[in-house]
Simulated assay, not measured.
Amino acid sequence: MENNSDLNNQAAQYTLCFNTRCPKAENCLRHSMTQYTTAQNIRLSVINPLCYPAAGKECPHFRSNKKIRVAWGFKKLYDDMPARISRAIHLNLEAIFNHSPYYRYRNQKLGLTPKQQECIRQVCRKHGWKEEIQFDRYTEEYDW
C-alpha cells in the first residue's frame, strides 16, 4: 500500500466527495481519499453538495477504489509479426487512437486501461495474429 504522504498528495490533486449518505461511498475513491486530507492541504477540490444525485440515481462522479492493471508501451508488439500483418495492425490502431496518442501509448508516455488493452488484442486477432500480446510493463493504479 502507498504511504500516507503519497495518498495525501493524491487527495490534493483530485476532486473529492464528502457525501456520507451516498450508498456507494465505501467503494468510491473520491470518498475514500477524503481521509487523507490534512491541514497541509490548503486547497481542495470538492463536489458541490447540491449536485449529489437523487436517491436511486447513479452518481456520475463515482470512481471505484479498486486498482486496475495499466499497461505501458508496446514497442515490441510488431517484432515477430509478418510485415503485412504488422502494417495492417499499425494502421488500424493509429486510426483508433489517432496519430499522436498512438505514439504516446506505444512509447509509454500514456498508460493503457484494460479496455484499451483488450481493443489492441481484438485488432491483432482481427488481422490474423494469434499470439498473446505482451506490453512493455504493467502497473496497478487507481482509475481516475
Rank of each mutant, 00 (worst) to 15 (best):
E2D: 11
N3Q: 05
D6W: 00
D6V: 07
L7F: 05
L7K: 08
N8A: 13
Q10V: 05
A12D: 06
A12N: 10
Q13P: 05
Y14P: 05
Y14G: 05
Y14H: 12
T15K: 05
L16H: 01
L16P: 09
F18W: 07
T20Y: 01
R21Q: 13
R21N: 15
C22I: 07
C22T: 09
K24S: 15
K24L: 15
A25D: 14
A25N: 13
A25E: 14
A25W: 03
E26V: 13
N27K: 13
N27M: 13
C28Y: 07
C28P: 07
H31S: 14
H31G: 07
H31N: 15
H31W: 14
H31M: 14
H31Q: 13
M33C: 09
Q35G: 07
Y36R: 11
T37L: 12
T38Q: 10
N41H: 13
L44A: 08
L44V: 14
S45E: 14
S45R: 14
S45I: 11
I47L: 12
N48W: 08
N48G: 08
P49F: 11
L50G: 10
C51D: 15
C51E: 13
Y52L: 10
Y52S: 13
A55C: 04
C59Y: 09
C59K: 11
C59F: 12
P60N: 11
H61G: 04
R63P: 03
R63S: 05
S64G: 09
S64V: 05
S64M: 07
K67R: 15
K67T: 08
I68Y: 01
I68N: 01
I68A: 05
R69Q: 11
A71S: 15
G73V: 06
G73C: 08
F74I: 08
K76F: 10
K76A: 15
D79P: 04
D80N: 15
D80Y: 15
M81H: 08
M81Q: 06
M81T: 05
A83M: 10
A83W: 03
A83V: 10
A83G: 10
R84P: 00
R84D: 14
S86Y: 00
R87A: 10
R87G: 06
A88R: 00
L91W: 00
L93E: 03
A95G: 09
A95T: 09
F97E: 00
N98C: 05
N98I: 02
H99K: 08
S100A: 06
P101S: 04
P101H: 03
Y102H: 06
Y103E: 08
Y103S: 06
Y103H: 12
Y103G: 07
R104G: 01
Y105A: 02
Y105R: 02
Y105K: 04
N107P: 04
Q108Y: 00
K109D: 12
K109Q: 11
G111Q: 02
L112N: 03
L112W: 01
L112C: 03
T113D: 02
P114V: 02
K115F: 03
Q116D: 05
Q116H: 00
E118G: 06
C119G: 03
I120R: 01
I120S: 02
R121A: 10
R125Q: 14
R125Y: 10
K126L: 14
G128F: 02
K130V: 12
K130Y: 06
K130W: 06
K130R: 13
E131L: 09
E132L: 12
E132P: 10
I133G: 06
Q134V: 12
Y138T: 09
T139S: 10
E140V: 02
E141V: 01
E141S: 08
Y142H: 01
Y142V: 00
D143Y: 03
D143N: 08
